[in-house]
Design a protein around this nucleic acid. Structure first.
Length: 255
DNA sequence: ATGGCTTCATAGTGAAGA
């Protein structure tokens, strides 16, 4: 079973690349973030024509998440339980007996921004929600754009990024608290190339100079980590014409 | 080594992303 995640930075703009990706990799699950698409404008026809079903929760201009699968997703829920949030950042579903949670964690803007406080509060609420999901679904995968680089090796210049948003201690601690629920970073279950990142700034030739951060993750419950055989960042998608600033990440599970 | 892209909503600029 192949599980993938990709922040597409506008599904409307990236739809041709998404369809190409589905054809090339045939994932069983593809989680999308930053669709920036109202539900009424979601390109369901093109996705169905590619052999995929989709569930989605979007809004105009900002945010927006979706789960694509050849099978119709079951037990679909939107958002975080018991948390009223107008921003469309979470969608969950059961696919093939695996609970899939697609997340677009807030960016935070900067550590002195009100959005940073929202991000930390949001992470606490996600933690509580995941704790509950784990009790109900031992086979749990949380995929998405976390907007947090977990360790020094996930950042092109740790000195530059120390204390900055995406790499500040409270953010890293919040991610560790989530992993302490019993979740593993699938990417680090395997040997990986040095300087592996999933996002590169559009500015300053960030991709060509590999000035990146690894902020897109696939976290797996113990039961799924046991059967995970690979996890790969598909950086070639970032090298295409008119790319998203994020590359997809894909993990393979063998039951 | 972050003002220096890209996208969206709009009709010339501004917000937001990371």
């Amino acid at each position: 079973m192949k599980l993938a995640t990709w922040n597409v930075n506008s599904l409307k703009v990236r739809l041709p690349q998404v369809l190409e990706f589905l054809g090339a990799h045939r994932p069983d699950v593809l989680c999308l973030q930053e669709t920036k698409s109202e539900d009424a404008k979601f390109p369901i026809g093109e996705i169905n024509a590619a052999g995929y079903q989709a569930v989605y929760s979007g809004q105009k201009t900002y945010n927006g998440v979706a789960i694509l699968s050849p099978q119709m997703p079951q037990e679909v829920t939107m958002g975080i339980a018991e948390f009223e949030d107008p921003q469309k950042r979470v969608i969950s579903a059961l696919i093939n007996g695996v609970r899939i949670i697609c997340v677009y964690i807030p960016n935070g803007e900067s550590v002195d921004s009100v959005k940073y406080g929202y991000k930390l509060d949001w992470l606490r609420r996600l933690n509580a929600c995941l704790k509950d999901e784990l009790t109900r679904y031992p086979k749990l995968a949380i995929l998405g754009d976390y907007n947090i680089a977990p360790e020094d090796r996930d950042v092109h210049d740790p000195n530059f990024w120390t204390g900055k948003v995406l790499f500040s201690e409270p953010e890293k601690a919040a991610l560790q608290d989530i992993m302490a629920l019993g979740l593993q970073d699938s990417f680090r279950l395997f040997e990986q190339p040095e300087k592996s990142y999933s996002w590169w700034d559009y500015r300053l030739n960030g991709f060509k100079r590999n000035l990146g951060l690894r902020i897109d993750h696939i976290l797996l419950s113990a039961e799924l980590a046991k059967v995970c055989r690979s996890c790969t960042i598909l950086r070639e998608m970032r090298a295409k014409e008119r790319p998203s600033d994020h590359a997809p990440v894909i993990a393979e599970l063998v039951f």
